[in-house]
Computed example of a mutant assay.
Amino acid sequence: MRILHVLNHAQDVGNGIVNAAVDLACWQAQAGLEVAIISSGGEYESLMKQYRIRHFTLKIPRSPLDVIKFARAFREITQIFLPDVVHAHMVRGVISAKTLRGNSDYVLVSTVHNEWQFHASLMGIADRVIAVSRSVARSMQHRGIPLQKLHIVANGTIGSPRRPPLDHVKPLPLQHPAITTVAGLYPRKGIRDLLEAFVQVADESPAAHLYLVGNGPHRAAFERQAQQSAHSGRIHFEGFQTEPQRYLLSTDIFVLASRQEPFGLALSEAREAGCAIVASNVDGIPEVLEGGNAGQLVRSGDVKALSQALLGLLRCRKDLESWKHRAQTNLDWLRVERVHQETLEVYQAAIAEMTRTVCA
């Protein structure tokens, strides 16, 4: 089977869509499938070479002239690689693959990550649509995507080719108790809520420190918010880190305070690292935390509930250790290998249906 993935870029910048797609492509190549990626390029190109994944550099169009050039180049790539499956992970990719398919006989598969974006419905023009959580699948159904097109393939990060195994990672010497989030610094990630909650936590727990691992366009605003706190010296903006596991392995409590979250790859990583977890009860998060069995769930946007959950863990070491253990229980379903196998089944079903249609 020949598989062509379509991405905006291949940069190692903490983009969950890119990370999940690169993980999948590497596992497919490792399984003996012929894999190629179209993207504007980035740091993951070296990983692609390691896994013998062919990379076609194609920049996303910014003008009408660019669109024409993109269309011509995309058509040429499909004629050169002759994919059985084109797997698009972004809207421009699925539109291009659909409109430029012509006489090509590939099946088109899309994966929906950020279903909250207004244009996510366009991902439904693919022959098969993969949702990364049950929450995303429900949303796509409400947007009119036929149920027979939809498949749920939950994300997973364990066994990622992008990162070294945990036993090869050296934990950072964080100050304890350490509360950490790994997230883009965007409003939808609930960073403002987390900063407000930490002020309440810090009032009662004078040794607690907060580490924010990630970057984003709103970082300056969040830093100003932190500086206005009496506890600003215990709030650390660490920026984007290529190995967030160094933080997670030294973290006592991992927090994901998102207001919108289709899945949350960082939760999978935090579970593997054995962090006690507190996260918003929104979208796909409860699925990653198995309904609250693997981490505490609080109402999204409820600063008081978030601070109380954090304080409860800090007050009772026994509870903290119990939640760390619960996070690391039942992890097999979060492996990239499972994502690969379930995605392959989607491909095979789509190809079989196309074959039946052609032969009918």
Rank of each mutant, 00 (worst) to 15 (best):
P244S: 09
A257D: 07
F237T: 13
T251Q: 10
Q228T: 12
I235E: 04
R259V: 11
H218D: 13
S268P: 03
R246D: 11
I253M: 09
L249M: 15
L249H: 06
S232E: 04
A220F: 04
S229I: 04
H218S: 13
S268A: 14
R219A: 09
H231T: 06
Q225R: 11
F240V: 03
H231F: 14
R224K: 14
T251M: 07
Y247V: 00
Q227H: 11
P244Q: 08
Q245N: 15
E261F: 11
H218Y: 15
I235L: 06
D252E: 11
T251C: 05
L249P: 04
A226V: 09
P262D: 06
S232W: 02
S250Q: 03
F240H: 11
L267G: 12
A226D: 11
R234T: 08
Q225I: 15
D252G: 11
R246M: 14
S268N: 12
F222Q: 04
E269N: 10
E261N: 07
S268G: 11
P217R: 12
Y247L: 01
A266I: 11
T251N: 05
F237A: 07
R259N: 13
S258T: 00
Q227V: 01
R234K: 10
L256Q: 08
P244F: 06
P244R: 10
P217S: 10
F254K: 12
E223Y: 01
A226I: 06
G264W: 07
A220G: 03
Q260R: 15
L248M: 09
S229T: 15
A226F: 05
